[in-house]
């Protein structure tokens, strides 16, 4: 087991990457799927054509790659850090979406969302002050 101070230094970069890759993956998948249209009369042939169309979209592949990387890093960090530490800390990803929507797309974000974002930051700050691992396993 890595000593506590080193464990924190090792954990933080992974916990930064998890919400970024998760949010990025969702945005890229959303961008890829936006142009696909709706399936109105589902049949085997229309579903097969739709699937081929989806799989030939570069944004879908980038999104899937990003989400796969997200899952790999999430699992790696769980090999040494507590689940009750990783789960709330990675919720910071919920703050990224309204923040990016406001900064990049100029969307008006309702005040209740900003209040929620403050709650998440406070929660992450409180959990972040506890040791990443309490079981000594890993």
């Amino acid at each position: 087991m890595t000593p506590p101070r080193n464990l924190l230094a090792k954990t933080i970069p992974f916990l930064i990457m998890v919400p970024i890759l998760g949010s990025l993956g969702n945005v890229l998948l959303g961008k890829g799927m936006r142009g696909m249209g709706e399936i109105r009369h589902p049949s085997v042939s229309t579903l097969a054509i739709y699937l081929l169309k989806v799989l030939s979209n570069v944004w879908v592949w980038l999104g899937m790659g990003s989400l796969l990387l997200f899952l790999v890093i999430y699992l790696l960090v769980l090999s040494w850090a507590d689940y009750s530490y990783v789960l709330p800390v990675t919720a910071v990803g919920y703050v990224l979406a309204p923040l990016l929507a406001h900064l990049l797309l100029g969307e008006i974000v309702p005040s209740s969302r900003w209040v929620g974002a403050v709650f998440i930051f406070l929660g992450v700050a409180v959990v972040g002050r506890t040791p990443p691992s309490t079981t000594g396993r890993g």
Binding site: S84, Y85, L87, P88, A91, Y94, V95, A97, P98, S112, R113, V115, G116, A117, V118, F119, I120, F121, L122, G123, V124, A125, V126, V127, G128, R129, T130, T134, T135
Partner: peptide, 20 residues
């Protein structure tokens, strides 16, 4: 070992996520 601080943090995060 889920300390009181960690419970408090998780409750804040849950409330925040619900609001966001």
């Amino acid at each position: 070992r889920v300390s009181r601080a960690r419970w408090a943090g998780m409750l804040l995060v849950a409330a925040g996520v619900a609001m966001v």
